[in-house]
């Protein structure tokens, strides 16, 4: 089984470390195994933060749901945003670099999960100190912002060589971020709750889940201005 090394916990930690430090993969593994290890990092570290996020109010079921939903959210947003990225890259003559470009994006995605997981103890500590629901939402918003900055740093590093070879990659990267964030926000909204409001029952999806995040945000802003 030396050709396809199993993704065990210690090897996963070493791979996460290599990813953060921009080192080559610890084992001499093939391209498919490298993809597998990035997927394993997103699934494991994402689930870890998801479980932490969902343990607010001491509800184990919510923690389990969130552990499933957070990696799902990251993977689904990535998968849905990929087809236009592929077509537009081809159109701009960057098809030969596509594998490397997607590899860089997947690495950034894995990096996001790792940074989130490292912030999990802080979130758990804040919950243990009796953080109320609204502040918990705010704290999680903050941890996601920090993780996004970390992922951005990893992305910039992985994309540097591509941009140096062809500056069009910079435009592609911006387009990717625009589409990914647009889809990701709605995905997070559709898969809510991740923390779970104290007065509401624990659910995998909210019953009114099939609404639109952007319309909801706009309605909230409009209500604020109408009220003032």
């Amino acid at each position: 089984m030396r050709g396809t090394p199993a993704v065990t916990t210690p090897s996963l930690l070493r791979r996460a470390d290599a990813l953060l430090r921009d080192l080559p993969e610890p084992d001499a593994i093939g391209a498919s195994a490298s993809w597998r290890s990035r997927l394993a990092i997103v699934a494991t570290f994402g689930a870890l933060y998801g479980a932490t996020m969902g343990c607010h109010g001491g509800r184990p079921l919510q923690a389990t749901y969130s552990a499933v939903k957070l990696p799902l959210m990251l993977a689904a947003s990535f998968a849905i945003s990929l087809p236009p990225f592929f077509v537009v890259n081809t159109l701009f003559g960057l098809r030969d670099d596509f594998r490397r470009a997607v590899g860089a994006l997947a690495t950034a995605q894995a990096g996001l999960a790792v940074v989130l997981a490292t912030l999990a103890p802080l979130t758990a500590f804040a919950y243990a100190c009796g953080l109320e629901h609204r502040r918990a939402i705010l704290l999680n918003g903050l941890t996601f912002a920090v993780a996004s900055l970390g992922a951005q740093a990893i992305l910039g590093r992985s994309y540097r060589a591509l941009i140096a070879a062809d500056p069009s990659h910079r435009t592609m990267l911006r387009a990717w971020l625009g589409v990914y964030v647009f889809v990701g926000i709605q995905m997070a909204w559709a898969l809510r709750p991740f923390i779970g409001a104290p007065g509401l029952p624990t659910q995998f999806f909210r019953e009114d889940g099939w609404t639109n995040a952007y319309v909801a945000v706009w309605n909230t802003i409009a209500a604020v201005f109408a009220g003032s």
Partner: peptide
Amino acid sequence: PIVAFFSVCTTS
């Protein structure tokens, strides 16, 4: 796929 995704989870 993006349009289908928004169609599934949007009532607006």
